[in-house]
Design a protein around this nucleic acid. Structure first.
Length: 465
RNA sequence: GGGCCCGUGGGGUAGCUUGGUAUCCUUGUAGCUUCGGGAGCUAUUGACUCCGGUUCAAAUCCGGGCGGGCCCA
């Protein structure tokens, strides 16, 4: 299956063949995480926990159901979500007096509790997160990991004494993102979403977008600054040092299983999945090369190597199935295992192990005596190379344009005066989604591509995934 | 939001026009054999998406549900 000529089919094919997800579950957009896919997700979750724990967040777990009365407290928020929430209307044989919403996100579950938890300025900042499933009734075509109705994601929610303090939380979130990006070898653009596309109820939203091979941007997460937009309706106040009751300023940060979708799309190739070593369930696979009469010797050596790597906490698997080596090579390539180790008579004689990199096909040997150091080193190089190549692709995906004729299949960068009128016209007339303006300062000098007014603001747009 | 297409063993398919015995590949299982890029042989398990209609008879024709895919907005 060819990735570049037929990305959509390729993607579906890989998800199935690599054993990431089984979408035969009989509800649209609700797929089964099969073991290999779930292991990848768990690696990502583990990293996120480590990062959030390390930055002073506490993990919590809120109920799945939200009373309609709480859900409807913030007007913009409900407007943004009420067409895509699932309702619980019955319990047993009885119709419920107060209907329950299945969380599409947890603001409205958490904030009534925050108003109880936050009393004094000494309670702030309050920083919590949870890793849970949320539900959104997607009406569009669903797609494994990218557009689903049951979404596995993490959401962190914070409360602060001031807008500035909340702003510094946003900066901390960018730091977490940067480290996550290195781990998953995923590049991203930080784009300030337009007023009409920001999270319902937010003061502003920064979208985290990754370019897919078809030139379209995939949003992999978002960071929101709420100011006091939620703390007012939910009455989240604290008493400051002067004895006054003040509304807290809030932020949220969320990312989902789309990270898995992005990894598939960014790194995969015609042979299958290519996994970044830090999240690969199996980082190195050992293929014993057996021939007549040497099975015992080869297997013994392979087990020795397996044990050594295992003890060094490298995720290793010895493939001792009764299959021919070639067939095993194909299997593990589809599954994207970063490093393949081959052990045969020739290797044993040379006291070495042959290796093949999944990412670029590079081959070589590692001396058996330094197998742990060698494998660690190569996995490190693979991670760095994947990271660098992915960023290079992300940058080259952007095309700066001055005319709307003959648009390339890329992410477009162009001048925008910033007016809503030009923004809407741009979207409506070009079948494109305005992703927003760069969050970080970016030199630009040109004219608005719609009205022609001079502007030093660039905007980004792409077709939606 | 609109349009088009599809649903047959675990996966991929033939059969459907013209109603009557379901094809092939792959996978799975057991055994033999083989092993530095998808080996071979033998035996064997396993299917017409659901509901309703037409009919002596439905995988096949008609309607609907559920599910999947592609394109456009």
């Amino acid at each position: 299956m060819e990735k570049d000529t037929n990305f959509n089919e390729w993607y579906n094919d890989i998800v199935e063949k690599a054993g990431l997800s089984d979408k035969r579950y009989p509800i649209k957009g609700m797929n089964v995480w099969t073991p290999y896919g779930w292991k990848i997700m768990r690696q990502i979750d583990t990293f996120i926990r480590r990062e959030l724990d390390g930055t002073g967040h506490d993990e919590v777990c809120f109920p799945l159901l939200i009373p309609e009365t709480e859900f409807k407290k913030e007007k913009e928020h409900i407007k943004g979500f009420d067409s895509e929430v699932y309702w619980v209307t019955h319990a047993g044989l009885n119709e419920l007096d107060v209907r329950l919403v299945v969380r599409p996100t947890s603001e409205t579950a958490m904030y009534p509790m925050f108003s109880l938890w936050v009393r004094s300025h000494t309670d702030l900042p309050l920083k919590v997160y949870q890793i849970v499933n949320t539900f959104r009734y997607e009406t569009k075509q669903t797609r494994s990991f990218i557009r689903v109705r049951e979404i596995h994601f993490f959401e962190s929610h914070t409360c602060h004494v001031s807008e500035e303090d909340a702003q510094s939380q946003v900066e901390e979130d960018f730091g977490i993102l940067e480290r996550l990006s290195k781990e998953l070898c995923l590049p991203y653009s930080l784009l300030m979403r337009t007023e009409w596309d920001k999270f319902p109820g937010a003061h502003y939203t920064v979208g985290l977008d990754t370019a897919m091979p078809n030139g379209r941007m995939l949003q992999i997460g978002s960071i929101h600054h709420y100011r006091t937009n939620f703390s007012i309706p939910y009455n989240i106040t604290y008493e400051n040092e002067a004895g006054e009751h003040v509304h807290a300023h809030q932020t949220t940060y969320g990312m989902s299983e789309r990270l898995v979708g992005a990894i598939i799309g960014v790194h995969g190739d015609d042979k299958g999945l290519v996994l970044p070593p830090p999240v690969a369930p199996i980082q190195a696979v050992i293929i014993p090369i057996i021939s007549k009469g040497n099975a015992d010797v080869v297997m013994e050596e392979a087990r020795k190597i397996e044990k050594k790597l295992n003890e060094a906490r490298i995720r290793v698997k010895l493939d001792d199935r009764d299959e021919r080596p070639g067939s095993k090579f194909f299997d593990w390539e589809i599954k994207g295992v970063p490093l393949r180790l081959e052990i045969g008579t020739r290797d044993i004689e040379k006291e070495a192990v042959s290796f093949v990199r999944r990412d670029d096909g590079g081959k070589g040997t590692i001396a058996t005596g330094s197998i742990v150091e060698g494998v660690r080193l190569i996995l490190g190089v693979i991670r760095k190379d994947m990271y660098d190549r992915a960023w290079e692709k992300q940058r080259s995906n952007v095309a700066t344009i001055t005319s709307l004729k003959d648009l390339p299949e890329k992410t477009l960068r162009f001048g925008w005066c910033g007016s809503e009128e030009c923004g809407h016209r741009f979207e409506d007339e070009n079948e494109l989604k305005l992703l927003g303006t760069p969050y970080e300062h970016e030199e630009f000098d040109g004219t608005c591509i719609i009205c022609g007014k001079h502007t030093n603001k660039a905007a980004y747009a792409s077709r939606s995934m």
